[in-house]
């Protein structure tokens, strides 16, 4: 991993306080954060998970990777997280990066059942050698942002599915990473909880000013959350279309019922059908 760049240096000057950040720049004016160029990923020599994937991620983007099962969305996230390596092509971070630059939320909350809510959120700091006392403020602030400050001493088993996912999100953002990867985090939740978490996620993103790559199967979720939707097709996994949802944030329930939202959903749905048609 390379040394930190200017963006990280700026963030370090600000400390890890989860303070409200400035409004993201317009889509075309955002500086580059990460670039994937000509990525191929093949498993066992013959299963082509990704073919020629190129994607530029800019600071402040909320990108949804939308596509049918097996199109390589999760593989792309694993490559960015360096959990596996591309067969061909390269991924470069503008100005380099370190482990603190990345937060991850999985489909399951993936909490440590033996640790309290606060201890779970403390984990990223703990692995960097920080004592709880030294980062208690950050941990509590992260929990406050996801509405769980009162539950800091509770064990995960006592929480509902939605609350567990909030803890997972708090853990991902407590170190104020530059990029958060979310792999279908709300897929297992009921519709009402999912809508509520969608709203909260946007509010959080606005507060901490990070970049998000969000994997989803849901057209509606991708349109509500993102300003860029990357539609992928399967066999081999590749990008077939990129859509922009150039609607201002914050987005609320009014946006969900607006004609603009419906039009974006129609476009995304058409692109998804195209992706599935190509795959068929």
């Amino acid at each position: 991993m390379m040394a930190g760049g200017s963006a990280r240096a700026t963030r370090k000057r600000q400390g890890t306080n989860l303070m409200p950040s400035q409004t993201p720049l317009p889509l075309g004016a955002r500086p580059e954060l990460l670039k994937m160029e000509g990525i191929d990923k093949t498993f066992n020599g013959d299963v082509v998970a990704l073919k020629g994937l190129s994607l530029q991620v800019n600071e402040g983007d909320f990108i949804s990777l939308l596509g049918p099962s097996g199109c390589g969305k999760s593989t792309a996230l694993r490559l960015i997280a360096e959990l596996s390596h591309p067969t061909r092509g390269r991924i470069t971070w503008a100005g380099g990066h370190d482990t603190g630059d990345l937060g991850v939320v999985f489909q399951e909350p993936t909490l440590m059942p033996w640790a309290t809510v606060a201890e779970n959120v403390w984990l990223p700091f703990r692995l960097r050698g920080a004592s709880y006392a030294s980062v208690k403020d950050e941990v509590l602030q992260a929990l406050r942002l996801v509405g769980l400050e009162r539950f800091q001493t509770v064990y995960p088993r006592e929480l509902s599915g939605g609350m567990k996912m909030r803890v997972s999100i708090a853990r991902a953002m407590v170190t104020r990473p530059r990029l958060i990867l979310m792999d279908e985090p709300f897929a297992a939740l009921d519709e009402i909880t999912r809508f509520r978490l969608n709203n909260d996620l946007l509010a959080l993103k606005e507060k901490i000013g990070c970049t998000v790559i969000f994997v989803t199967h849901s057209v509606f979720e991708s349109v509500f959350l993102s300003d860029r939707i990357v539609v992928m097709a399967a066999r081999p996994g590749r990008v077939i279309r990129e859509l922009t949802v150039d609607e201002s944030y914050p987005r609320d329930e009014d946006f969900r019922t607006s004609s603009d939202y419906a039009a974006h959903c129609r476009s995304a749905s058409d692109a998804l059908h195209e992706a599935m048609g190509i795959a068929a």
């Binding site: 360096e82 482990t99 440590m112």
Partner: peptide, 17 residues
Amino acid sequence: DHNLRDLFRIMGATRWQ
């Protein structure tokens, strides 16, 4: 849990941690 293992890897945990 394999996801927790991945998470520890992403967060740069040492073998001892």
